[in-house]
């Protein structure tokens, strides 16, 4: 039986450093960028990322083990672009797109499109609220199955 992982202070410190990079640089780092920014070996960084993935805190790309998702940030371009002042990020879904400005406690503009008709939609988050936006959110996957395939969810 696999040993249950526990989130440690070392995990927390590494996660903080990762999120600091994402927030200040405006993108999810590659492993090479993290090794340089943290002055750690690639082996150490890969191991720390894998631990966070095993704890369901990160999602790693299947072929490279690079970070794909450090919720609510996404490493590669998606249909949800979040712009706040001079920085911008990608989110994989509307939940995460709304979360970015709330987490950062900043105003932001989410540029996206209706998933059905592809017409452009823009969400403005201002002082923690939404400005005059119409639209609805659809969850296709019940909560009990979110982690069967988090990328699809």
């Amino acid at each position: 039986m696999a040993k249950k992982l526990t989130y440690t202070e070392a995990d927390a410190a590494f996660r903080q450093a990762l999120y600091h990079f994402i927030v200040t640089r405006g993108h999810v780092p590659k492993i090479g960028e993290l090794t340089a920014a943290l002055s750690r070996s690639q082996k150490t960084v890969r191991s720390a990322l894998q631990r966070l993935a095993d704890l369901h805190i990160l999602v790693l790309q299947q072929n490279t083990s690079e970070v794909l998702r450090a919720a609510p940030f996404w490493a590669v371009p998606t249909a949800f672009h979040v712009q706040s002042a001079k920085r911008s990020w990608w989110a994989s879904c509307v939940w995460d797109a709304l979360a970015i400005p709330l987490m950062l406690r900043r105003d932001a503009r989410v540029t996206t499109a209706c998933a059905c008709c592809d017409s452009a939609m823009e969400l403005i988050v201002h002082k923690g609220g939404l400005l005059g936006t119409k639209g609805v959110i659809h969850f296709a996957v019940p909560a009990s199955r979110w982690y069967e395939n988090i990328v699809f969810t």
Partner: peptide
């Protein structure tokens, strides 16, 4: 979790992709 202009667009999208309607709620929620 996708964004749609309205519930009608959710229904159309579900028909197109032959998916069951899941849960729908407003942006404020």
């Amino acid at each position: 979790m996708l964004l749609f202009r309205s519930e009608e667009h959710v229904a159309r999208w579900c028909r197109i992709w032959k998916l069951r309607r899941g849960a729908v709620f407003p942006l404020q929620q």
